[in-house]
């Protein structure tokens, strides 16, 4: 853990210094005034409201969207992963195809496609349910990540020694039972770091939801720039860069630590 703590401290301190240096290099003597202006916009950028009264926009929206998208993708990805290791070629072939298609499609294109593919509202039991941009963004982000999770699932299952399968078969378990009760529980420690990497990637990708018209941190940033003037643009984007870094870097370090622990135990 010590080496990881060191990298963490070096990373956080170093990146803070680099970003501050960039900020001062761009703004020179105006740095103080600009910094005060942008700092005053903190509640708006973080929560989408001017005084932290609600958490429906800004960086909070990115976190909410990424969590929902991860949950959706985890369910769909596990199903796709089970399909990919199926013994029947009729299920395996299409599953592998879908996984490859989803994995190779650009997130931005999927997001745009979801924007137009999903209806404006759906009718369930006579009641109209509106599909908000946020829901579309969540589904659009979840689709490509489904492929990644399916790959992680397959990799994890394949890392469990085949002897486990054979002994469970000898005890009379059926295939899905073996997966659920024997193989997957052993694969979870191996899958966890990869899932965390996938989540970090998803969170980084959540910056793209700005194109769907959600009030995420980038669309709030655009509003701030439009009202405060173009000269704050660099400062605002530096700030957002720092926000994303502070959220993703601890996840990355934790992932590396877990990865090492799993490897040692093996």
């Amino acid at each position: 853990m010590n080496a990881h703590v060191k990298i963490f401290l070096v990373g956080v301190l170093g990146v803070t210094l680099v970003l501050v240096a960039l900020f001062v290099a761009v703004y020179g003597a105006d740095s103080g005034a600009i910094l005060r202006d942008v700092a005053g916009r903190t509640p708006l950028l973080l929560s989408g409201s001017a005084d932290f009264s609600a958490f429906e926009g800004g960086f909070a929206a990115n976190i909410v969207i990424s969590l929902w998208a991860m949950a959706l993708a985890a369910v769909a990805g596990t199903a796709l992963g089970v399909g990919m290791i199926s013994q029947s070629a009729v299920i395996r072939g299409p599953s592998v195809l879908v996984m490859n298609l989803l994995r190779n499609s650009p997130w931005l294109v999927v997001l745009y496609a979801m924007l137009y593919l999903l209806p404006f509202e759906v009718r369930i039991f006579g009641r109209f349910i509106e599909i908000s941009p946020m829901i579309k963004a969540t589904i659009g982000l979840a689709l490509p990540v489904t492929a990644n999770i399916a790959e992680v699932f397959r990799g994890g299952v394949e890392s469990v020694p085949t002897g486990q399968w054979e002994s469970a078969r000898a005890l009379g378990y059926r295939r899905l039972q073996i997966l659920r009760r024997v193989v997957v529980p052993q694969a979870i420690p191996i899958m966890t770091p990869n899932l965390m990497t996938t989540y970090a990637m998803l969170f980084i990708g959540s910056s793209l939801v700005v194109v769907t018209g959600t009030h995420d941190v980038l669309s709030v940033a655009r509003t701030v720039i439009a009202s405060d003037g173009d000269h704050v643009a660099t400062a605002v984007y530096l700030y957002i860069l720092y926000l994303f870094f502070l959220f993703c870097f601890p996840i990355a370090i934790l992932t590396r630590w877990l990865e090492q622990r799993v490897r040692v135990r093996k």
């Binding site: 990373g11 680099v18 761009v26 984007y237 530096l238 994303f244 870094f245």
Partner: peptide
């Protein structure tokens, strides 16, 4: 190490906007 951690852990979209605005400022 700092360079790698900074650019790996931030969205390329925000990097792009940042570069776009900073470099046009310069």
């Amino acid at each position: 190490t700092i360079f790698v951690e900074l650019f790996r852990n931030t969205p390329p979209l925000v990097q792009l906007f940042f570069l776009y605005f900073m470099l046009s400022d310069i």
